[in-house]
Amino acid sequence: MKTLWKIIISHVQYRNQILQLAKTDLIKTYRGALLSWGWAILKPAITIGVYYFAFTVGLRTGKPIKGYPYFLWLISGFIPWFYISAMYTGGAYSLHKYAFLVKKIKFPVCCVPMIVALSNMIVHLALTLLMIIIFIAMGAPITIYLAQLPFYWLLMLMMGVAWGLFSGQVTAVSKDFYQLVRSSFTALMWLSGIFYQISTIKGTALRFILRLNPVTYLIDGFRYCFIDHIWFWEEPLSLLRFMLVYLLFVFLGVKIYSRTEKTITDVL
């Protein structure tokens, strides 16, 4: 508990530096390339294009869902996934990425995941905006349900930070763990209901297990906003499950941090 409090205080104390670092992190990622900022859009566009092609032309599935073209249904799951996937590997690598910093300049290690989470969030917000434009351009109705997007953004950020704190520290001491994260990346993508609806899967037990995955919850949430038109409070059980997983990561991250706080900079 004391450690958790300390972590929160550090974030408040270093808020300006964290924001500055997030900005720098973002600029660094895209600068230097000829298309620079274009890549922030182009890269996801290519990925979505490939999957769209595979499903509609190759597999010839991809029928409209709930009256929305499959393409729109697909991107409403893909856009949050880009953020989540960036945090999945990026969070695990965050402490290493900023080792040069925390080893030389006084900066609390516990604030590093927040830097990565914020910089990815900025890209995500831009992509979401673009997605809304695409919806409008394709004549799909935009509804009041979009008003709950900030709620999901907050959950994504919180989960990203908690995961980053936990996984970053484990990565710091175990290369195996990082390899595990990287190699499970594709599995996570296919199990999180980006390409198919979990609700149409046969077998209650299987559905239950798949829905324990917090990634599924976030992706479903985006679809609630764009496609299904459901408020988040209409699914309190799913939210509860998500929060339990979130608290588990917070607990683990904080517990480990209470052990390593004084030594982590020596290990990185």
């Binding site: 300006n16 530096q17 500055q20 670092l21 720098t24 660094k28 600068r31 230097g32 040069f100 910093l101 080893k103 030389k104 300049i105 900066f107």
Partner: peptide, 18 residues
Amino acid sequence: GFDPELSGRENIYFRGEL
């Protein structure tokens, strides 16, 4: 303590602000 991707001038601000 420098960020290798940033220029020298940017690093002045980077480090200073930290």
